[in-house]
Amino acid sequence: MTALVVGIDGGGTGTRCVVATHGGEVAGRGHAGGSNALSSAAPEAALRTALRAALGGLPADRVTAGVFALAGSGPAGERAGAMVAEVWRACGLAGPPVVVPDTLAAFAGATAEPSGTVLVAGTGAVATRVTEWRLTARADGYGWIVGDEGSGVWIGRRAVRAVLAALDGRAGPTALRDAVPGGGVAERIVDAVHTGVAEAGPAWLARLAPAVEEAARAGDAAALDIVREAAGRLLAAVRALGPSPGPLVLAGSLLSEPTLLAELVRGGLGGPGLTVLTARSGDAGARGAAALALRRSRPGAPAPVSAHRRLIS
Rank of each mutant, 00 (worst) to 15 (best):
I189E: 01
A162D: 08
P173K: 05
L208I: 07
G271R: 00
L254F: 06
V5F: 06
I8T: 11
A307K: 07
G183N: 06
D283I: 02
A286E: 10
G156I: 06
P210L: 03
A209V: 03
P43A: 05
A289H: 12
D191A: 11
I226Y: 04
R177I: 04
A139F: 12
G232N: 14
A69D: 15
V180A: 01
T21G: 15
T128G: 01
G143R: 04
A41N: 10
S151G: 07
V197L: 08
G184M: 13
A45S: 13
L205H: 03
L294I: 08
A286N: 14
I155L: 08
V19P: 03
A286G: 08
V197H: 03
A215W: 02
G77T: 12
V100M: 13
P299I: 07
E263L: 00
E78V: 07
R16N: 12
G169V: 12
G268H: 14
G273D: 11
D191L: 10
A198S: 15
G152C: 05
A121C: 05
G24Y: 03
A303G: 04
R170F: 02
N36F: 08
V193N: 02
V276W: 01
V160N: 01
R62Y: 06
D140C: 06
A41Q: 14
A27R: 09
M83I: 09
L58S: 10
I145A: 13
P272A: 14
W144T: 05
D61C: 00
G288M: 07
